[in-house]
Design a protein around this nucleic acid. Structure first.
Lengths: 112, 112
DNA sequence: CCAATATATGCCCGATATGACATATTGCCA
DNA sequence: TGGCAATATGTCATATCGGGCATATATTGG
């Protein structure tokens, strides 16, 4: 687990601090978080592909711009449910979702 | 969409009745429900593969037998979140999940 | 066919996610 | 650099989810 990932996760609300340090996260927890980030990233690209702004997608989903922003960022207050329903609403099929899940998340990495 | 599926879905709490008939469900709604059923079925088989009873899995998940039963049946009060976390807790990886999603659900069918 | 065991269903109430709003931050282009 | 559009973040009330219990219904072994 590299430093960059740690930063990205710690950045948002993931209760990682205090007693239980980051490295104390169990495999499931990590996979779960990765899942969210992954789905969020794909939501962004699907939205962009349709030339929609967050506000417009929000309208489509009967939600709000702020919530869409949180979805795309994998905020801790957003459920997989919402994320998946959003993707479905943008036309993704079950197989598309499968493709997303099996894809490898590319994390920006500093040279060296 | 065959009769069997309709029955299975209507059986549980899916608000399908009254005004909006089953056929009125949108593609997303259908995919969403299928997703749950699919994940639920795989949860059952993973649990069985580990020779666990629902009570035992419940304990593992810090949940209750009744909730596990509902997960496995794709009850409407169960979120994808819970289902996926349960699968992760049983050792499934993101790729495993992807495999599940892309699999085709086999529905029992009467001969003839 | 009967117990015993496993699973399913219904309900309640406390926990958490959600939409909405206000506001801050970023990104873009002249 | 300024100014505007887009996105991000914080907070709150309400709606929905989740654990737990009671009980009904399967399923299994004798």
């Amino acid at each position: 687990m590299e430093i960059n990932k740690q930063k990205r996760l710690k950045a948002r609300g993931w209760r990682v601090g205090s007693a239980e340090d980051f490295l104390g996260l169990s495999r499931e927890e990590i996979e779960y978080i990765e899942l969210k980030l992954l789905l969020g990233e794909h939501l962004t690209s699907r939205r962009r592909a349709k030339k929609l702004k967050q506000v417009e997608l929000a309208e489509l989903l009967q939600s709000s711009q702020s919530r869409v922003a949180k979805m795309e960022k994998g905020d801790s207050t957003v459920s997989l449910d919402l994320l998946i329903r959003a993707l479905l609403a943008l036309g993704a099929t079950r197989r598309d979702l499968a493709g997303i899940l099996s894809s490898v998340r590319t994390v920006a990495r500093r040279p060296g």
